[in-house]
Each structure stands twice: as structure tokens, then as C-alpha cells.
Design a protein around this nucleic acid. Structure first.
Lengths: 340, 340
DNA sequence: CATATTAATGTTAGCGATAACATTGTCAGG
DNA sequence: CCTGACAATGTTATCGCTAACATTAATATG
């Protein structure tokens, strides 16, 4: 590697001390205006690039934050990253991106590597396989600020930015109830996953608000994927052939897509015979033959808020533990039959 | 920040020198097996995390590569990043992700910041507004390896990994010619952009191969977006009402979507009246009413190959300048009417 | 048994920057 | 003209680690 120009070389070229060069380039006071100018010029001419590594070693601050993403491809996360990058960039921070690939071990390694690289803070969305939440607490005890986004771990004193799943699920369910749909089926997520649980809670909450009974038999576990949605919906269609629900709330869009297929295969019309809504505004939602009513999750906003919170912590502008919620937005399309 | 445990504290705890600790933890030879074990144990017990910043300062190597992405949201790039991350991670490198947002100035700043942070190399896809290619050359002269991905800059001695646009465009055009479609229109990209140019070349090449004349009037600039495709197609439909082309090769999928809308508004059928193909396998391509025949670009592979090449350069396993090409894959769907 | 060899460990210096203190020089005020 | 105050600059030490050389102790060799 061709060696880089250092501050002391700039100093030597000008016959002054390294310290003055440092002061001049960092806009410190007590530097003669003319000296400053000469330093700047010489630095530029010699192609001086400050060595941020050396700086970091002294200052104990890297202006870098670590971001751990469980799944890069899922369109939600790139949006989050965009938000993170936007805010970080403005604040003068760079991001080191790590991919845990939903793997607890890789996630742990990633965090350690980030700590080793002395990032000023970490943004993380936990991998699905993570069991040992204690580790996060340890990291925080080391004085490394940690903020969760999207998938949060509560009770360890970490701030957290997420989509309000419960409220959003309530919102979309209310939308159906309000338009007279009842009874409503729910294709639920895997029972162990928090997100699925929250959405189910929202589904119930909406019913309470409207004084309607939730028909437990109409809650069928579908998981997060299309096939699960298809199967779950088939189960419902078969079991309640004579007494079909008027509408379906799916735990997410892919599950809804599967369900729509099942409904159509049965020769039923959407939304006339059965209305259906999803969750997460998958890119395909508006492209379906019958565009899907759903909840748009503002991933970009999640990223921005999480980054802002982390940087506030890093810069000790606050030390509050917050649970920040980004509201979901109801996107009404044809599949619920409410638009017009 | 709670201060971290350092190697010398581990050393002190054991009554040995820092150097021995360093050697033990880095698996250097000439360390007594028992000592090594004791060091490891004590380090673990004290919660020692090596300071990679200090290490980098000495070794002049950060095990970090910079990645500059012009556009995070476009699904192509997250896939590339996934490929980069995959290969980098395996080789023990982390990535600093920068977003140029298609802005030449931001891109330049990003590169400088990355250089300042002493990344071992940079992967970059140029922002569309970049004019000053000389800057890349300067970066390389500083001894900072640079590999372009997807959008390349030639002639400055940088390696480059890209989709073979010309061949892919030829491939999909040939597919149409082979099935008897002629004449064929082309909705081209912005004339200044290399990618568009390459695809047009491929379009021509296919015609040559089949001894067909390219009808220049049927080449209309559409740009990369839906509206442009719509307008360009309308122009063609209006101008050649009596003598419509049998098929259309769009510069990319969004342009194709716009064109499809124009065709349908005109009351024509796809593919019966006019066949159409796109480029890039947008996620929507297979979800259209008439699923779109297109070229699938293996972004993941681009990322992997680019990262591999860069790391090879960084580790001086090679110094060859290569132009690596990832082949596009023809995805035949209904819109070209050739499937069955 | 003296010396060469090697394994295990220690010591010193330095990576490139900045903090903290030290030194100069200049000018105002008595 | 001397002194105090302050601006401009320099010096030294240090961040945490590792390279390179130095030292010690143990073993081998003739």
C-alpha cells in the first residue's frame, strides 16, 4: 500500500508542529488565521487524509454505529437501514452493517465484533432464534448503548423502536367491524412469536371495543407464509362451509395471499363473499387482482427514530429508556370492500 | 462510558507481560500451552474485548471494507449487499455501508470518509450524477483497492463486476426473433447512461444475428421509469397505428409496465397483438395480470463476486484488473407468448 | 562440561492522532 | 520599562496494541 500522508508530514512541510496542524484542521481556536489557511492548503496539496483510526484511539469515539439486521432481503429492513443511514449521516456517523441471518450465534459474534471495533452504539433487531437475552444486558453494562428496532427485547433497560402491532391490528379489525363485517376470522402467526401475539391481541381489542364476541374457532394458526395462509383458510372454509365468516384478518400479507388463493379456489368472491385484510403492505399487495387492504409499516421511520434515539444516547443528550412506537397506517384497497 | 478491560490489565492480573497476552490470544507460536490457557481464561473472566482500533493502528489494516450504494431501496442493491456481506463475513471482514443517494457529492464525501476510516478496500456502484471519474483513479493511487459493481467505470484500471447487459438484451431479443416476432420496437434508457446503451447494443446484435434490420423509428427513449415507458409506448402506438411492431423490448421492467398500460388502454392484447419483454425481474413482473417475460439479474452473485475480487486484491492474492460478468437469466412468462 | 539452539517471555518503540501542560511572544496598563 | 494577560505555538505523554529485538531458561550436541 502506498503510504498515506500524515499530519506530521504536513507539519514538517510547513516547519511547524503536528499539534498546530491538528488544531488548524479541526477548527480549534487559538490558531492564527493565516497559519490555518496555510495548513489547509498544504494538507490539500499533499493529499492529506486524517487517520480516523488514530483519532478514535485517542478520543475513544469512532463516530460509527453498528447495525445488526436479521434479514437483509426482506424489503422492510432495507427501508429501516435507509432511515438509519439518513439520520446517522446527518449526525456525522457511519454505519457498520452486520447480518445475523436470523442466527443467534452469528448475532452474538456480530455484536462482539462491533464492540471490538469500538462502535459508539448498536442498533439491533433480534434474530428469531435468540434465547439468551442476558447477553444484551451485558453489552449495555459495558457502556455500549443499545437500541432495539422492530423486534424488541423488553425488561433489560434498552430503548426500543417498533411498529405498534397491537394498535395496528386493532385499527384494521375495527375498520372491518365498523363496516358491519362480523364474524371475522383471524389467521394468526406462530404462537410463540411476539408479533403474532400482539396482532392477535389487537384483533381481540377491536372486538371488545365493538362489543362483539371473538369466535375462538375462527382463530387458526397460519404462520407468516403463503402456504400457511392457504392451509389455514382452507381449514376455515371447510369447517364453516355453512356459516362462513364475513371477513378475515390475516397476520401478514403473505398469509393473506395464501388465503385469497384458497378463497378463490373455493369459487368465492373477494370482497363480496369474504373480505380480507393483511398486514405489512407487501409490495405485491396493491398488485393483486383484488388489491389487498393492509397496514403500512413505516420502516423508514422506524430506522430514523431508532438512529436518532441511539445517537442521543451516544451523545449523552438523554439517558431515558424509551419505547418508541411508530404507528401503522391503514391502507384501504379493494379486498375489504369498504372503499366505495 | 464504563471503561473497557485492556490487554495489559489481563497481563497484570496474571503477572505476565502484555506481549504474552497478545501472543496467547492471537494464537501465535512460542507460547506455553498452559500460559495460553490461563490467559484465555482470565481474559474471558475479566470480560476482555480486544480493541480492534488499536490493533488497526499498528497493523495498518482494519478488516473492514467500505460499500457505497447509490440507492438502498431498489431491491437490486440489498441483494448485492447480502452477497457482499456473505463473502466478507466468511473472510473476516466487516462492511461499512454508505449511501450516496445518487448524489455525486455525497459519494465523494463517502469515499473520503471511508478512506479516513482506513477501510481496506471499497466496493462502489457509481451514482448517476457522477462526472469526475478522475477521483476514483486518485483513490486507487492512494493504494486503496477499488472494485466497481453493477455500474462500472472503465479505463481507470479498476476491476468491475456487472451484469452483462448487452448479452442479456441480445438474449431476450433473440428469444423474440426466434419465435418469429418482427419488427420489434425498443423502449430505450436515457441515452447518456451506459446500461441503457449496452441494452440497445444487445438489441441490435440480436437483429444482426438473425439478419434482420433494426427499424430505427421503433427505438424510442423511455428512461427507466413507468411513466416514460407509458409515454414512449403511446408514441409508438400512435405513430405506427397501421403498422404496429409485433413485439417490444423495454429497457427495464418499470418501463415495460408503463408500456403494458399504454397497450391495454389502446385495447390491444398482450401478447396476442403485441408481445413485450422487460429487463431486471422486478418483483412485480410475475404478479402482473400478464406476467412479464424478463431477464433476471443475479444481484446476489454480483455482490459475492465483487466482494471476492476486492478481498483478493486487499490480500494481494492477485493484482489483475478484471471485468467480471454475471450472466443474466431469461425468465419466460406469458407476456412474450412463447411459453406454450 | 561448554556452547549452540531453541522455546518462552520480556522490553522498547512506535502506529497517528490529541489532551494537557509548557513555552514563547506580543501588547496593554501602570 | 516592567509585568500580567492572553494568543499562538510547541512538547510530552498517552490511547491499546503489536513488531522487532533482547533476555532468560531449558535442552541438545559434541
Amino acid at each position: 500500500m502506498a503510504k498515506r500522508v500524515t499530519a506530521s508530514e504536513v507539519a514538517k512541510a510547513l516547519g511547524i508542529s503536528t499539534m498546530t496542524v491538528s488544531r488548524a484542521l479541526n477548527n480549534r481556536p487559538n490558531v492564527d488565521a493565516e497559519t490555518r489557511e496555510r495548513v489547509r492548503e498544504t494538507a490539500k496539496q499533499l493529499g492529506y487524509i486524517p487517520n480516523h483510526i488514530a483519532k478514535s484511539l485517542v478520543l475513544k469515539r469512532t463516530n460509527t454505529i453498528g447495525v445488526v439486521v436479521p434479514e437483509i432481503t426482506h424489503s422492510f429492513f432495507p427501508e429501516v437501514v435507509r432511515g438509519i443511514e439518513e439520520v446517522s449521516h446527518k449526525a456525522g456517523y457511519q454505519i457498520i452493517l452486520s447480518h445475523s441471518a436470523e442466527n443467534a450465534l452469528r448475532e452474538k459474534e456480530a455484536i462482539q465484533t462491533l464492540a471490538s471495533k469500538q462502535v459508539d452504539g448498536i442498533l439491533i433487531s433480534t434474530a428469531q432464534t435468540v434465547k439468551d437475552f442476558q447477553f444484551y444486558a451485558q453489552v449495555m453494562q459495558m457502556g455500549l448503548p443499545l437500541v432495539f428496532y422492530d423486534r424488541c427485547v423488553k425488561g433489560i433497560g434498552a430503548s426500543c423502536v417498533s411498529i405498534d402491532d397491537e394498535d395496528s391490528a386493532a385499527l384494521i379489525t375495527e375498520h372491518l367491524l365498523q363496516h358491519g363485517y362480523y364474524p371475522i376470522a383471524h389467521l394468526s402467526g406462530p404462537s410463540a412469536v411476539l408479533i403474532g401475539e400482539a396482532r392477535l391481541q389487537g384483533f381481540r381489542k377491536a372486538h371488545e371495543k365493538y362489543n362483539k364476541t371473538v369466535l375462538e374457532a375462527l382463530i387458526v394458526e397460519a404462520g407468516f407464509h403463503e402456504e400457511g395462509g392457504f392451509k389455514a383458510m382452507k381449514t376455515i372454509l371447510d369447517r364453516f362451509e355453512e356459516n362462513l365468516p364475513r371477513a378475515v384478518v390475516a397476520v401478514n400479507d403473505p398469509a393473506a395471499f395464501g388465503a385469497m388463493k384458497a378463497i378463490q379456489e373455493k369459487g368465492l368472491r373477494i370482497p363480496e363473499d369474504i373480505a380480507i385484510v393483511g398486514f405489512s403492505d407487501d409490495i405485491r399487495a396493491e398488485l393483486m387482482q383484488t388489491p389487498l387492504t393492509t397496514i403500512r409499516q413505516n420502516a423508514y421511520e422506524v430506522g430514523k427514530k431508532a438512529a436518532k434515539k441511539l445517537i442521543d444516547l451516544v451523545q449523552e443528550r438523554t439517558s431515558d429508556v424509551e419505547e418508541i412506537v411508530v404507528k401503522g397506517e391503514l391502507v384501504v384497497r379493494k379486498s375489504c370492500g369498504c372503499s366505495g
